[in-house]
Structures are given as structure tokens and as C-alpha cells.
């Protein structure tokens, strides 16, 4: 079911999200939540990932849009209780936006590479070493679980122009 993506000001975006007990991962409620997150993310033309707090649920789950991968069937799309194990020393300011902070953009300093450990939708623990966009996503989404929005870290923050918004909306 498609859920509303809550916007800055909603209490769930500022709360510390709770871990999902591993034995509950395969429960109907969690599986339904994961499906809702996929459905809701798919409605956003410019969405590459979505954390549970963004649909008002204070749980440590995020999903990644399959279209960012060439072979999504080989990739992990669901991250439950993710934990960043290590980050590369090199970092750079990256262009960033958030589905819960419409329509703002800015630059946030993010590490180039990240190693993450999480559970998938089947309750299996896995590790992923990511760089590029995926490393960027991991850092942005794990911030959501601590109640941190990109606005808190961004420089050169600005409102998007009408033209940029129209382009995203496909008009």
C-alpha cells in the first residue's frame, strides 16, 4: 500500500528509530511494512531510497530503488538494522536532497566508501562494501534512524527552482 511520505516537522523524522527484533523480520507486519516502503518509493520519480521514518514508522529499515542497479536481482534492496562498520578516510561534498525535505537541495560531506552490515527481508545477515551512489545512500538513510536530516549537515542549502521541480515531476 502506498503511504504518505512525511515532511520535515513530522516527529518520526526527529525520533531515534528502534531496531527490529530479528525474530520479527519475517512477521506479516514487517513484511507488509517493507512492501509499503517499496510501493511508496516507487511513486517518487526522483527517489533512490526510503527509510521507514519517512513514512512515519520509527523502525530501522530502509529500502533502495531497484533502478539504481543494472542487475537489481543480484543486489540487496532491503536493509534492516543496518550498521556502518567502516568508512573510508576520503570524503567529499556531494549534491543531496531528501524526499522528506521537498524541495530543498544542498551539499553534504559524505565518505566515498562505506561498509555496512544489515539483515535482509529474510532475516539473513549480510555485509556490503559500497562506493559511489550506494555509499552515499547508506550514509543518508542511516542518518534518518538517528533523527538527522540532510538539512542539519548541508552547506549551500537552497530551494529548487520551478524548472528543476518541473523536470522531476516530468512536466
Amino acid at each position: 500500500m502506498i503511504k504518505e511520505i512525511v515532511q520535515d516537522g513530522h516527529p518520526a523524522l526527529r525520533a531515534k528509530a528502534k531496531e527490529v527484533p530479528v525474530e520479527e523480520i519475517q512477521s506479516e507486519a514487517i513484511q507488509e511494512l517493507i512492501q509499503d516502503m517499496h510501493d511508496s518509493l516507487a511513486t517518487q520519480r526522483d527517489g533512490v531510497a526510503l527509510a521507514a521514518p519517512q513514512i512515519g514508522v520509527e523502525k530501522r529499515i530502509f529500502v533502495v530503488a531497484p533502478f539504481i542497479f543494472k542487475h537489481p536481482e543480484r543486489e540487496k534492496l532491503v536493509y534492516i538494522n543496518p550498521r556502518i562498520l567502516s568508512k573510508s578516510r576520503d570524503a567529499s561534498w556531494k549534491h543531496e536532497g531528501c524526499l522528506s525535505c521537498r524541495w530543498k537541495v544542498g551539499e553534504v560531506k559524505r565518505n566515498e566508501e562505506v561498509e555496512i552490515e544489515a539483515y535482509d527481508e529474510n532475516g539473513e545477515k549480510f555485509r556490503v562494501h559500497a562506493d559511489g551512489l550506494l555509499a552515499h545512500i547508506f550514509q543518508h538513510e542511516t542518518d534518518h534512524f538517528e533523527g538527522i536530516l540532510f538539512l542539519d549537515k548541508a552547506r549551500n542549502l537552497r530551494d529548487m527552482t520551478e524548472e528543476e521541480i518541473r523536470e522531476i515531476q516530468g512536466e
Binding site: 517518487q44 526522483d46 527517489g47 533512490v48 531510497a49 526510503l50 533502478f67 539504481i68 543531496e96 536532497g97 531528501c98 524526499l99 537541495v105 559511489g132 551512489l133 552515499h136 545512500i137 543518508h140 538513510e141 540532510f150
Partner: peptide
């Protein structure tokens, strides 16, 4: 997060 897939 907002973003888009990159191309070569």
C-alpha cells in the same frame, strides 16, 4: 534520498 542513476 533523492537522486538519479548515473550513466557513463
Amino acid at each position: 534520498m533523492r537522486g538519479k542513476k548515473t550513466t557513463i
